[in-house]
Computed example of a mutant assay.
Amino acid sequence: MFREIWLVFRRELTLSLRNPAWIGIGIMQPVLYLVLFGPLMERIVSSTPGFPPGNAWVILTPALVLQLGLFSMFAGFGVLADLRNGVLERMRVTPVRRLALLLGKVANGVVQLLVQALLILVIAFVFFDLRAPIGGVALSVVIVLMLGVALSSSSYAVALVLKSEEAFVPLLNTILLPIILLSGILIPITQGLAPQWLYTLSKINPFTHIMDADRAAFRGDLTVDGLLTGSVVVFVLTVLTVWWGARTFQRENA
């Protein structure tokens, strides 16, 4: 199994390295947020009660890294391209397990996500007033990578079911925007900031709890209150989506 995963991963990584533009494209939006939104965030945090602990950069930077994880929802475009070019058809006649096909592709996405996340963190530490414990930052990155595994697995599953870019794009846009707005990525949704109805609605969104745990880890708050709910949510989400993705790969590539 591990050899099969490695073979699929190596193929996917080789294709990615042939066009390394994904590095710059992936981090461009977070960097713009750091440069153009970060200074405004500093003023907002210093003059507005209700924000989580920490300065603006401790609040904003983990959110931007987590946003990279949310963009793993677009991973399904790779499967649609493989379908269109007949790559999956050729893989069906090989002895490679369908789970290995999924995990090899997911592993490539996780490596890309890790590279982009590290670049954002380096930029934030070097050029902005970011001060955060290394252990907490590492745990925050682990949470983001688990989210990347979950969302890329589900994205591959949805893409295999739909088999159409025309249906896949509007579905992603419909799902992604409410998730971003309700998870408090740019402005945290707390009881001190949001009206009660919006705060309640945000707590229904599982990604809000992941965002809260990510920020808690980033600022070094390793307590049960800070990490438990979000960690459980991201773990359960990862297990369920990998299972769903594997089942879909098995069924659609039988």
Rank of each mutant, 00 (worst) to 15 (best):
G226Y: 01
V8Q: 08
V8T: 14
V79Q: 04
S46K: 14
L222T: 08
S47R: 13
L80Y: 08
S231G: 13
A81E: 14
P49W: 01
V234D: 08
L182G: 06
V31R: 00
R247H: 07
A56G: 04
F207G: 07
G135N: 01
L34D: 03
A138N: 09
I189T: 12
S155G: 10
M41C: 11
A194L: 01
H209M: 02
A167H: 02
R3G: 03
L99N: 10
L113I: 03
Q116Y: 10
G69D: 08
E165A: 07
V93P: 02
R18T: 06
F127T: 05
W197I: 13
V239F: 06
R92L: 12
F168C: 03
G26P: 09
I123W: 02
V137W: 01
T94N: 06
L36P: 04
F74M: 06
Q67F: 12
R215F: 05
F235C: 14
S164C: 03
S183Y: 09
M211L: 13
A159F: 05
L99M: 12
V111C: 12
R215A: 01
T94W: 04
G184P: 13
N85P: 01
D221F: 00
V158E: 02
Q67W: 15
L139Q: 00
S140D: 00
L17C: 09
D225T: 14
N85C: 02
F207H: 02
G245L: 15
G50K: 06
L193W: 11
V106P: 14
G38W: 08
G135A: 05
S72Y: 05
G86P: 08
A246T: 11
A100G: 11
Q112G: 15
S46L: 13
T174H: 00
M1P: 10
T208S: 14
L17Y: 11
F125R: 15
S164A: 09
R18G: 14
Y33H: 11
F74Q: 11
S183R: 15
A21E: 09
G148Q: 12
F127W: 14
S140C: 01
L15S: 14
L162Q: 07
R18Y: 08
T223Q: 04
L66W: 10
A157T: 07
E166L: 06
R131V: 02
Q196E: 15
L114F: 15
L17H: 09
L99H: 13
G148R: 12
F249G: 05
V45M: 08
V87L: 12
V141M: 11
T208I: 06
V239S: 08
Q116T: 13
I23S: 10
E12F: 10
G78W: 02
V87E: 08
